[in-house]
Simulated assay, not measured.
Amino acid sequence: MTFSVLARDPETGELGIAVSSCILAVGRAVPSVRPGVGVVAVQARSRRGLGTSLLAGLADGASPDELVKRAAHSAEDADRQIAVLDATGRVAADTAPGSFPVSGHVLGDGWSVQGNMLASTDVLPAMAQAFVAAGGGLPDRLLAALTAGQDAGGDVRGRQSSALLVVGADPVSDEDDGVRMDLRVDDSGDPVAQLRMLRNLQRAYDERDYDTLALFAPEGARDLYAALAASRRGDRAAARTALEALSTRPGWSAWLASMAGDARLAGVQRLLG
């Protein structure tokens, strides 16, 4: 009922998973991730707590292969499908004999793709090929694989939800929870495309791409980003117009006053001054 890809970035040590399915809120059901420990996909009719147990096993020093073999011997999980990746890039997967056809998994160097109730046998090879060929950071490579899986047919029942999670290489600390990306589409007619859009929006926030945010941020904040984009270009008239529009929105005048010391807005004020 689901197809997913999990991987480790050999350069940064980041761990991640992307998943899509024709169920509501697949991001709640399939992925389990712990920074500095590993990432797990629990699919088909696996027990809901299995992801937590597998991550605990990784944290205790068990290898992915050991954990998958243990789970494979559990008679109550005849419809189980799991994949386990640890912080060093070791990976193992198992598709139980009772899993829904078409089902299977493909393992690579620090990554795996897996799925069940797929539209065709082309889905997993397409995902594997796309992941290996893709450039960019881990989120983009995961999304490339997920997109290829959807383009090859994806879930035979249709489309509903997707998720993308990426965490850092180091364990959680008081200063850093380790989460690098946590995006979810819980109910959509085209969840993979929607997930790609969210990824691009997250990139715009991270990189302070104000021109993009002026178009795609929530409507109430677009004038702010338009002002910042105009300030970056040195366009005084456009910055003034955007700030004037922003100040007409209820509550924004007080917010602008409270943000007088913000370095980004200081640049706008200098331009207008």
Rank of each mutant, 00 (worst) to 15 (best):
F3W: 10
F3T: 00
E14Y: 04
L15W: 03
A25S: 15
V30T: 12
V30K: 06
V33N: 00
G36S: 03
Q43P: 12
Q43M: 15
R45A: 15
S46W: 01
R48V: 13
G49D: 15
L50Q: 11
L50A: 14
L54T: 10
L54M: 09
A56N: 10
D60P: 00
S63N: 05
S63H: 04
E66H: 10
E66Y: 00
V68N: 12
A72P: 09
R80I: 02
A83S: 15
G98T: 04
S99L: 09
P101H: 04
V102P: 00
S103N: 13
D109T: 13
N116T: 06
V123Q: 01
L124P: 02
A130Q: 06
F131D: 03
P139I: 06
L143C: 08
A144Q: 07
S162V: 09
L164R: 07
L164Y: 06
V166R: 05
V167T: 13
V172L: 12
D177E: 06
G189Q: 11
A193F: 01
L198P: 02
N200G: 11
A204Q: 05
E207Y: 01
L228W: 13
L228T: 06
A229Q: 06
A229E: 09
G234M: 11
G234F: 09
R236G: 08
A237R: 11
L243P: 02
S247G: 05
G251L: 07
W255A: 13
A266M: 13
V268N: 05
L271C: 08
